[in-house]
Design a protein around this nucleic acid. Sequence first.
DNA 1: CTGAAAGCGCTTACAG
DNA 2: CTGAAAGCGCTTACAG
Lengths: 354, 354
Amino acid sequence: MKIKISDVAKAAGVSAATVSKVFNPQGSDNIKISDKTKQHVLAVAEKLNYMPNYGAKLLRSGKSYTIGFATENDRSFDCFVSEYTREIINGVGAAAYKDNYNVLLINGKDYLEYCENSRMDGLVIVGYYRDRDSQEKERLAGYKAMSDKNFPFVLINGIYEDKDYSAVSVDNESGMKQILEMIVRRGYRKIGFLGELGDNLQRHHIQREKFLREGLAQLGLPVNESYFIHGPSTERKAVPPSGNYSHIYGFLGMKEVHEKGMDIDCLVCGGDEIAMGALKYANEHKISVPGQIAVTGFDDIPQSEFLNPSITTVKQPLRDMGAMAFEIIMEKIRHGGGSVKRKVSPVLMERQSA
Amino acid sequence: MKIKISDVAKAAGVSAATVSKVFNPQGSDNIKISDKTKQHVLAVAEKLNYMPNYGAKLLRSGKSYTIGFATENDRSFDCFVSEYTREIINGVGAAAYKDNYNVLLINGKDYLEYCENSRMDGLVIVGYYRDRDSQEKERLAGYKAMSDKNFPFVLINGIYEDKDYSAVSVDNESGMKQILEMIVRRGYRKIGFLGELGDNLQRHHIQREKFLREGLAQLGLPVNESYFIHGPSTERKAVPPSGNYSHIYGFLGMKEVHEKGMDIDCLVCGGDEIAMGALKYANEHKISVPGQIAVTGFDDIPQSEFLNPSITTVKQPLRDMGAMAFEIIMEKIRHGGGSVKRKVSPVLMERQSA
DNA sequence: CTGAAAGCGCTTACAG
DNA sequence: CTGAAAGCGCTTACAG
């Protein structure tokens, strides 16, 4: 029924080994097939519509030409594609396509098995972690197992920057510096920060707040602690997360700014979704943005550009980061070598909100 | 190095065949392994950390436990994950996970090969087609080839409803009926339609316009042709698409409504992105929505709920549609059978814009 | 209930 | 430059 390599060999009057070599010129032997034989085999294979069996190739060569893709959150690995991860997948996918690799979405507990059983040749892990992380021990054990086996994997926006694992991460410090440069240029002086209001904060938000604080100090601008709204406080209880969105933090944070009459001229938000929530409160209460208070985001989610006012933010080059992760894996597959770390600068997008 | 089935067999004092049967209870033989042997083999395998080789299983059994996922646009198959497709992937992925299947992102020209060479056991295709489709012949040849091989595939929001291919599609007629019901209930009487302004329209938008027209006629409401803004006209040249977004159509369409002073009290848009563009124009020109003119969308993209005003629209249950597609494929893999067609009703989301 | 043997379709040293 | 032979690690009739 299905044409196999021996059918092609017979029809072409050559051996299966020769057909194999025609189809895999980069094999161990170095290319030593005459051009005439090669063209002939190719023509016969074409005519018979020969397609090499994937399972047989995989069994024999151990190469799957497949890269796994997993999202990792506080609870587990999963194959859920979020707004962020879809753009990263597009970056990984486009890069992989060029090298004839495919992308396999990896579910929960399977990833350690898949890196052993030849299901994939490498793994991209996108992680958004919080400060307290109940799965940390298992996570680290998994990474260590892969690392010990010398299995190529890359963490995108992960943490564990101290560990010797390949990683591609957004540079929160650079992003915050760019926001600060804009702040200075536009003459804002009274700066506030608005992050998550829960009791287990995203590590990226914690970092961003820290870099803002440090940057302000360096610039000699005042740091008013009571204008840094982040996590629970003596007056404010922890706000539980609501669904998949963190708009609620922005909404409630802006409410606090408003009701307490905080004297802020630019409110720096930990992420675009928080900025969106802040804008929603401002809209509803006729607070003019940026007239009365400017608002900045971080990340540049797709809707930021279409809101009214559109959000001034820094853009994470998610596709590029995905492509980089793939390149790091390919480099390791091809030439081995140790771990590679990449920091990617986000790009300031000056729009209407600040 | 890696533990294989013979290692487990030896350590457990049984044959490889027995180990295989323990791991594949649903094999042809029917389960005839004693409980004692089974437990023992399982314990030994666990201790040795045995993981069956994927390539070997695939070569022998021909089952990949993998479902391909492809997006198809006017130009080609690709693995680009859009805002829509990500939610469909999430539906396919969650359903697949339950049955221990994985999702493989399929690139361009590979899909016909992959359905032959055991790379995947089924394929989900998400298609957004336009009226004139330069790739139609190749597309149909591909579908026919898969169909002839009896290879399971499902078209999501495809076209070709007349052909005997499995399909899951949103019910545009039901969606438009729900919008009309809302229109009548709220007392809107002067209805306009705003679709794409290009010269090669999405088939879904064409359908939606048709169902609106028919529904208005049935309700005895006036159909003012000059308020149906769709495609080029004698006065209006075709507007080329701009990037990945169709907001521009909504913006320009609302401009036309405004500048010509069209007497419309509810503007039905062909999709949420178009509605977004219309709202943007209205915002910029201080046209009150829904006070002066109501606006409705179609699809329910994620940002629709967060705009100001939020968009009244009908929601496509994209995750459910993905899950259905997977179920149809599984049914075919397990029990064979012919093609299955499913129409899915969208759900009215009444928000602020109408 | 269990095992011996064949074979899935390739690739890869090796020999010539 | 080409081919014969072995073998990757499983599963599957078949025999017992």
